[in-house]
Design a protein around this nucleic acid. Structure first.
Lengths: 143, 143
DNA sequence: TTTGCTGCAAATGCTTTGCATGTAG
DNA sequence: CTACATGCAAAGCATTTGCAGCAAA
């Protein structure tokens, strides 16, 4: 039950928060739709007939982020993308043509990052690794 | 002479473009100041008594980027940072506290990135790897 | 002279905030 | 009942664009 997650985050369980979490979860199952912008969430809410303001979407996503329930990424082009925080860390590879996003984890890269930070006197807190390229999926426009 | 670089980019050699390039170069020598925002460039211009509009700074930086003379990075927090395009590619490590930026290159990471992209059917075009952490430089506020 | 450049101000696009009302606990 | 949530509209930023005047080639 997601109401527990919301309560645990120290937030009141309200309809907007439930619905937004629901959308994040539903799209977490679909391929390629795991990462949504605030605008995306808002559109889905409207499509579901919910009457929730865009400002609330931003507020709630920010609160979820603060609570560690979702992660926010700043991809190219300015706007942010949110995804339900999974158990496991991962990086992204994005298609420049169709926007298709895949996740990956590479232990050797993770390890090197720590060494690099340490060598330079940094205490590594987080990192952002995004590969941009052209994919060869059958539905990619440029293929 | 930087007027050559501008001309080679197919742009007219004008005072604003010269001055902006100059600022990019001057700060390319200082440690930690290699990466500047449009606003930074604008402030330096004002400080130097130049009467150049912020819009022009953005326009020129964008043109320089298109010409491959500078690189643009989207760091956390929304705004872009520009740096003179060096000969060699590199990644960044940024201090979350003081904003100090260092560059690094790690061949093993570069190599893994290519393998990862290839394995997933992507033709890698570029990537963005930024490590965020706390540095232990003597001038870092939190130290 | 002609085409491209500039400053200014206004317009954008994404995100945040102020405020009066509404509601979970 | 009280503190926190919400919707709406307005405000904020970083960045872009329209336009009339200017300047490089």
């Amino acid at each position: 039950m997601q109401s527990q997650d919301i309560r645990k985050a120290g937030l009141k369980v309200t309809l907007p928060r439930m619905k937004i979490l629901e959308i994040l979860e539903n799209h977490g199952n679909k391929q390629g739709a795991r990462h949504v912008s605030a605008e995306d969430v808002y559109k889905h809410l409207l499509a579901n007939g919910e009457d929730i303001g865009l400002a609330t979407v931003y507020r709630v996503l920010t609160q979820f982020e603060a609570a560690g329930m979702v992660n926010r990424h700043h991809f190219e082009g300015g706007h942010s993308v949110f995804e339900l925080a999974g158990e496991h860390h991962h990086d992204h590879i994005v298609c420049s043509q169709c926007g298709h996003i895949e996740e990956f984890v590479d232990e050797s890269i993770e390890a090197r990052q720590h060494s690099i930070a340490k060598e330079r006197g940094f205490e590594l807190r987080e990192h952002c690794l995004i590969l941009y390229g052209n994919c060869v999926k059958e539905n990619c426009p440029h293929r």
